[in-house]
């Protein structure tokens, strides 16, 4: 163990500089995040994630945000285990009929003020699954959405650029 740790220390960090903040995301958020809420939250946001029908591709890239290259937590953004601790709800997938209730309950369990980020093409508008009998549609068909990060799946850099906008508004 010591060898691995020393080597890691000597090599220096792999962590990369952040991508420029996504302009469209900034514009989208400016409408939903007011200054008072901004002041209350400071530069720290807790994120709760719900997979409402994803193929798991978006989850893989959300996981990658915590690896050494992207290191999400350095920006004050962190994933938390309970909606009761969260300021932001990230949602992936077309919302399935079977997950609608669980998604609503998770949202309702979060304290105000709170924001919803739809992640991936399916969450944006149902994507490939739009119109299917087993899905309700995109996240916006169930919850008020403040920010959408598209992609199938969005890359960790795209995710980072979008999520950082939450701190810059």
């Amino acid at each position: 163990m010591r060898k691995t740790m020393i080597e890691s220390l000597l090599r220096g960090p792999l962590t990369e500089p952040p991508p420029p903040v996504d302009d469209t995301a900034l514009a989208e958020l400016a409408a939903s995040v007011n200054n008072a809420a901004r002041a209350r939250l400071g530069r720290s946001l807790s994120i709760r994630h719900v997979d409402a029908g994803s193929c798991n591709g978006c989850e893989l890239e959300l996981h990658a945000l915590s690896n050494a290259f992207y290191d999400l937590e350095r920006f004050g953004l962190r994933f938390v285990a309970s909606p009761r601790h969260a300021d932001v709800l990230t949602v992936t997938g077309p919302v399935t009929v079977n997950m609608r209730e669980a998604l609503l309950r998770t949202y309702e369990a979060m304290p105000d003020p709170k924001w919803v980020v739809a992640i991936g093409g399916c969450a944006a508008d149902g994507g490939l699954f739009a119109g299917g009998a087993a899905v309700v549609g995109g996240v916006k068909d169930v919850l008020p959405v403040d920010l959408t990060i598209r992609g199938c799946p969005p890359s960790p850099r795209q995710l980072l650029a979008g999520l950082l906008a939450l701190l810059k508004v």
């Binding site: 997979d51 193929c55 798991n56 591709g57 978006c58 490939l128 299917g132 009998a133």
Partner: peptide, 26 residues
């Protein structure tokens, strides 16, 4: 996470059906 993939594939051209298959499990 039942999205109705098999039902959605029925009637689809092969290239579109392949996209559904590619999203069965990311």
């Amino acid at each position: 996470v039942h999205r109705g993939i098999e039902a959605s594939m029925a009637g689809a051209p092969l290239d579109k059906a392949a996209m559904f298959a590619a999203r069965a499990s990311g």
